[in-house]
Computed example of a mutant assay.
Amino acid sequence: MTIRLLLADDETMIRAGVAAIMATDPDLEVVAEAADGRAAVEAARRHRPDVALLDIRMPRMDGLAAAAEIRRAVPATAVIMLTTFGEDDYIARALTGGAAGFLLKSGDPRELLAGVHAVAGGAAFLSPRVAQRVVAHLGGGSRLSRAAAARRRVQALTARERQVLGLVGEGLSNAEIARRLNVVEGTVKAYVSAILARLDVRNRVQAAILAYEAGLVGDDGP
C-alpha cells in the first residue's frame, strides 16, 4: 500500500531534497507540499496524508503548533518533525505535541525513509543523534543521574516488557516487534499498553526516549 506524504518547510531547496529522497521509494508518494505551518494544516485537512513531515520553524504557524493542529484535525495522520542541530528546546517541547518521529534534515536519507515507514506503521522513530540530544536536555540533573532514574523506572517492568521497550526505542512497529520476538501482534499491543501505563508516559515517543535514557536501545535482553 502506498504511503501518502505531506512535506512542509519554508525552504524550497529542503522540500525539493526531501521529495527527491521520497521518490526513490516506490511505496511513498508526496501528495502535497507547504511553505508554512498554516498551509500545512490546510493541506493535511484537504489531502489527509498518512504522514506529515514538518519543519519545526516555519512562518505563520511553527511546526509545533501545526503538528498539534494536524493531530487534532486529522488524527490518522502521523507527524514527523524535521530538525537541525541547535533546536533541542523545540524538540523537547514537541514530545508533548503528538509527533511520532524526529529526524535530522542533514541525516542519512535511508534513516528518513525508515522513519517514514516506521511512523506510518504506528511506531515511533527517533534519529539516534536526535535522541541523544533530547536525552541530554530533558529535565534537570546530570545525564548520569537521569540515566539512573530511567533504569529505576524500567525495573518496574518485566524482562519481556523491557525487551519490548528497547525495540520501541529502535523504532519498530508492533508488527515488526511481533516478528522479532516470534509472538502474535496482539500480544505486542498488550505489552506496549502495559508499558505506557506502568511508566506513566503518554505515547511511544516518550517511551522511546526513556528507553534511550535507560540504555535499552540495541539491547535485546534475555
Results as ranks from 00 to 15, higher is better:
R57I: 01
D55W: 02
G221W: 11
G171N: 06
P109S: 12
A32G: 09
G97S: 11
R204Q: 13
A156T: 15
A147G: 15
R180I: 10
G215M: 08
A43E: 00
A39G: 08
I91M: 08
T84H: 02
A40H: 07
I14S: 04
G218Y: 08
V188C: 10
M1I: 13
V184H: 15
A197I: 14
E33V: 09
A159K: 14
Q155M: 15
T24K: 06
L53A: 00
G122E: 01
A194M: 13
A35Y: 07
A149D: 12
V134A: 06
D108F: 10
D200K: 14
G121C: 02
G166K: 09
D25W: 04
E87H: 09
V79K: 07
A66E: 04
A149T: 11
R180Q: 14
K105P: 09
V201N: 10
A68K: 03
R202G: 03
I195A: 04
G97W: 13
A43F: 08
A19P: 01
R179Y: 05
M1N: 13
D55E: 00
L5A: 09
A156M: 14
A35P: 04
R153Y: 13
R162I: 13
P26C: 07
A52M: 02
A214T: 13
A35N: 08
L53E: 07
V119H: 02
I70A: 08
R38N: 04
V30N: 10
V135I: 15
H117K: 01
G122M: 06
A156W: 12
G218T: 14
A67D: 07
Q155N: 13
V41M: 07
Y212P: 01
R46C: 12
A99P: 04
A19V: 03
R152C: 12
T84V: 02
L126T: 12
D220T: 14
M58G: 10
V74R: 10
A44H: 08
A147V: 15
A39I: 11
T96Q: 14
P49M: 00
G97Y: 14
A100W: 05
R133G: 14
A52Y: 01
Q206F: 01
A159I: 13
D27R: 10
G86P: 01
A52D: 08
T2S: 15
L104A: 11
A34Y: 03
M1A: 13
A67K: 05
I91H: 03
L82I: 00
G107Q: 08
V183D: 11
A35W: 00
R162E: 03
L64W: 07
G17W: 07
G139A: 15
Y191K: 00
V201E: 02
S173V: 08
A23R: 09
G139W: 12
G86S: 10
A190I: 13
D220M: 13
T12W: 01
L53Y: 01
V164F: 12
R160G: 12
G98D: 06
A114G: 14
E111M: 04
A20W: 06
T187Q: 11
R151A: 15
D50Q: 05
L64K: 05
E111D: 13
E11H: 10
D9W: 04
